[in-house]
């Protein structure tokens, strides 16, 4: 099946090549093959595929990656705008077999 790609040129991901030590941890945690590694140096190959989950930045010991991480969920944005508590969002699953319904509000918890 074709790759699903969301909006173009909007992602806040940034990689500081100066700080990067080329360990490749970001390649391991990224669920959308955003990074590539070539001869020990890491770069961004597929920026628009980034969903800003923040796993790469979190696992970068060299602190070379920055991204405004969050969950891309309209209901969470609406809840936050309305000042509702617990406005984070999650209904994404952790296995192909288990899109996991989660406790809480509409499509979000």
């Amino acid at each position: 099946m074709e790759r699903l790609i969301y909006l173009k040129d909007v992602v806040s991901l940034d990689l500081d090549a100066e700080k990067c030590v080329g360990c490749g941890m970001c390649l391991l945690v990224c669920p959308h093959e955003v990074f590539y590694k070539n001869n020990g140096s890491v770069g961004i190959q597929n920026r628009d595929a980034c969903m800003e989950c923040g796993a790469c930045a979190k696992n970068c010991a060299a602190e070379a990656i920055s991204v405004n991480s969050g969950v891309g969920c309209a209901a969470a944005v609406i809840n936050a705008a309305l000042g509702r508590q617990n406005a984070s969002c999650c209904c994404i699953d952790d296995s192909q077999d288990s899109p996991s319904a989660q406790p809480g509000g509409s499509t979000c918890c």
């Binding site: 790609i5 969301y6 909006l7 806040s12 969903m51 891309g72 969920c73 309209a74 944005v77 209904c91």
Partner: peptide, 20 residues
């Protein structure tokens, strides 16, 4: 459909804000 972004596995928060 917009609310389905929360269940999808590839939408970024920056993108959702822009869409909204």
């Amino acid at each position: 459909a917009m609310n389905f972004t929360g269940s999808s596995t590839y939408t970024s928060l920056s993108g959702v804000r822009k869409e909204m």
